[in-house]
Amino acid sequence: MTWAIELDGLTKSFRGKMAVENLSLNVEAGSILGFLGQNGAGKTTTIKMMLGLLRPDSGGGRILGKSITGESLQVLRKVGYVAEVQQMYGYMSVNEILNFSRQFYSRWNSALIKRYLDFFSLPSKEKIKNLSKGMKTQLALILAMAHEPEVLVLDEPSSGLDPINRQEFLRIILDEISLQGKTVFLSSHQLHDVERVADKVAFINQGRLLDVRSMDNLKTTVKKIRVVFQREPGSSLFSQPGITEVSREGSAYLIAVEENLEGILAEIKKYPYFTLDIIDQNLEEIFIEKVRGDRHE
């Protein structure tokens, strides 16, 4: 397995306040990673360290084998980046900023640019300051893909886009990046977008990485089990590994499971019960549970 992105112990604080703490994370080449966290969880800080805009206090990492702290230029040549609010030179026209950016890259896909300028109906002679927020985001995506990057880093890319445009945006990323075998690092609190496309999901809260798992694994094993026993089970049942929370209402138990679903079910079934339901959890429910759980600790 080849890693497109390897982050190792990234740590960064601002004026004594920890923004990212000992964050280690690997992203497989050709995959889409959803980087999930609330606002202020440390997503943007992590991305800025990846791109050399911020220097980590400690730790480091590699993107496509190049050090993010020592070889920023080589990293930037192979990475496309869409920032949350990308301020570009407002006095430049769409064409002018494309021509400006072009001077810094050896690869440049003019056909791709033309395809998506037409697709988005972006007026190429219009000044950037006159574009709507959505149009600026679309232009930022074109700018990020123009040099055919191996890795696309997106920081809350769909803010400012309506649902239809958001779907289109995702589809373009799938078509131009994922289907070309390239890697996507998608930071977002738009769980719906991540849920559609991510291979893996990384949860970050208060600067710390809570969990990294494949979406399929999450949805297969993170469940709630509602069981009504015929008689009280032994308390050892609830100390099974993988159980994160147990709440009780009369003889009914609600058991939150994060791992080891099969094993836990097998244990539960050793006790006679009236009903047993396995409740699926979607990404939003999983996310909320994780952040809530982290606060309690």
Partner: peptide
Amino acid sequence: SVRELALRLTINPNT
């Protein structure tokens, strides 16, 4: 094709 279905459903081609 994988591409067609992934784009039609807007889901990851790996899926």
